[in-house]
Design a protein around this nucleic acid. Sequence first.
DNA 1: TCATAAACGAGACGGTACGTCATGTCTTTTT
DNA 2: AAAAAGACATGACGTACCGTCTCGTTTATGA
Lengths: 199, 199, 199, 199
Amino acid sequence: MAEDADPARRSIGARRNPDSAEAILQAAETVLVEAGYAGFSIEAVARRARAGKPTIYRWWPSKAALLLEVYQRQKRVDVPDTGRLEEDLVGFLKNLFAHWRETSSGSVFRSLIAEAQSDETAAAALADYSLGRRSHTAQIIERAKARGEIPAEIDSAVVADLIASFAWRHLLTNRLDEDEATIGKAVNYVMRGIAAPAS
Amino acid sequence: MAEDADPARRSIGARRNPDSAEAILQAAETVLVEAGYAGFSIEAVARRARAGKPTIYRWWPSKAALLLEVYQRQKRVDVPDTGRLEEDLVGFLKNLFAHWRETSSGSVFRSLIAEAQSDETAAAALADYSLGRRSHTAQIIERAKARGEIPAEIDSAVVADLIASFAWRHLLTNRLDEDEATIGKAVNYVMRGIAAPAS
Amino acid sequence: MAEDADPARRSIGARRNPDSAEAILQAAETVLVEAGYAGFSIEAVARRARAGKPTIYRWWPSKAALLLEVYQRQKRVDVPDTGRLEEDLVGFLKNLFAHWRETSSGSVFRSLIAEAQSDETAAAALADYSLGRRSHTAQIIERAKARGEIPAEIDSAVVADLIASFAWRHLLTNRLDEDEATIGKAVNYVMRGIAAPAS
Amino acid sequence: MAEDADPARRSIGARRNPDSAEAILQAAETVLVEAGYAGFSIEAVARRARAGKPTIYRWWPSKAALLLEVYQRQKRVDVPDTGRLEEDLVGFLKNLFAHWRETSSGSVFRSLIAEAQSDETAAAALADYSLGRRSHTAQIIERAKARGEIPAEIDSAVVADLIASFAWRHLLTNRLDEDEATIGKAVNYVMRGIAAPAS
DNA sequence: TCATAAACGAGACGGTACGTCATGTCTTTTT
DNA sequence: AAAAAGACATGACGTACCGTCTCGTTTATGA
């Protein structure tokens, strides 16, 4: 996981050095994976990236900003389009859990959420990001509306919220390896409801 | 608000001094409310409580332990029992949001969740606590099962999880003042499902 | 070097428990030998002696007092009486160095001197003790005066001071294993002087 | 006195800030004079110097190192050269006592000796320093040898040791205001010896 | 062409908090 | 009455990071 391509990276003149930025983002990710959020400090990232702390502060005014960019660099999770909403949602959650579990994304996003609890700007950034993601997720639902699978008056934002909340809580409580059946149930309840059919 | 009933609290012999414990828990809560999770340090709590740091560390081995006890001391939120599950769930969420909004509980619980992202023991403690709460919430659902309102084969743990997740995410993203209608929708979707009725 | 004859020493009622006192003094000596002055704390002594700190503070108001008693308990060094002052002084120094080197006395006395540099009462106690010792040493010289070996007008206190100073400095600078010849020279210079004989 | 020439001393780049070093050494001296060795803590020095503790630890790895540098910064005591050894030695001791008495040097050096009793590195540093000073003092004696005042076979190191020991003990036992006559006697005994002339 | 400006690594700076240790005082319980 | 036990407030220990600063170097750009 080496991050120091060149042993002595230098300024490349009066502009941002992409190598440095890359090294810093790489280092941030590595530190987060190796030492967790507890060991994630600007100091540690700078050491690992062989970068000066001011270089980091110049481009990322806060830990949150750095975390956010690290998260955004990562591959997005696939949103399936099977033609059936329930399958789409289950597939999405399965993919998301696997993504969070198997890459560093989970650690990064957890850290970002944690950071947002003490850092106002992190909270704002996370809110922005979440808004974007939610509307993205809502598209799955909108597609289902278009297909007539669900009524038009369903508030897709709320549904997306329910789904995302379920994912967040599993991430935050270390339950990403949850049984697939549980995911299925959760989605099914949202799809079909839990009330007994009016007989 | 005041935490120093006696200006010079002393040892009361070879056993825990309840006054000190009380002062420390009070101070922890006050610090958290006034300065937020970012300003919540053992140092600050000790200062505010006029207690020694070792006294805190003696009884609460980690920030997490202190946070957890502060949270548990607080009044529990009412779980309504109206005889109709949907009303119960909506009422529960409304009460919970109000509780989190209007008392320090929200700040405390947020902090606890954040702490759990970097502290293993905090994570374990939170998991324990959540388990207890979830089963508690599940009782609402079990009651509905008993009434025949919902089928017996519904996994009440998953339902409780959906509800709790929704609450957590609103807490963590500063959306406790969410429109009541939204809560209603969310619960309704879980109750009735979002799928269009098979026509 | 066990100091706890009985694993559960108890109070013996309303009077000083000699076993405790003994255990504490033993423990003080042991701690000093094993951990040096740096590790010599009331806390450590209490732990080692299985005694309560207040018990120590009751009988020895300061570290200095404890050190002093530990030092005084120890066997005194022999003061030879060979009938010749020079031999007496050399013998005394040799015995003293050996005593300091081979028993815990050296460590204890060093610590006492060090303690006296920051503790006023220790300084006073040390001054008292030194006065006694000096007059004791001066007796060697007085005997020589009586024998007519040295003139009566010699200030034996100053001579004792010179000899004691030499010893102290060797103790304080870890030079107790100094060559015997050096001791001989030092005493010889004091006895015969270093000036060239008036020819 | 005052230690904060500039109210907000800052870093001057990636190298040692002489202002900070100066402020710290000044503060160390002041603290030692005002509060004695007992009150001499890195914490106190940092407070007084308005410096961060890590800054002190960066440059002086131990209290001993700081003490030593404080001592070495101070003006050296004059070594007289009157042409007569006895006068030189008496003058040297008088100057030394006055220097120790009237400046902070006495306190500093006492503390250094005390520190050396518990800190190995302090002991080594002190030994080094003493060696240098002893050879320095020995020069007085060597000069006397050159003049034929004393025989060549006199071990000047031992003589210097006797003189320095006398000074140390007076310092360590608060007897720097000793009668001048006593100093005279001590030197005289070393010069002429105390033995009665062979009649 | 060459001065300027910006970015770089490095690392020192004044601070705050960490978690631990020792201090000397206190009270309860036991003998 | 004294001892054990151990909790207490206090404060120093030495370390890790914080975010800011200045250095000396490097390179692209613009006068």
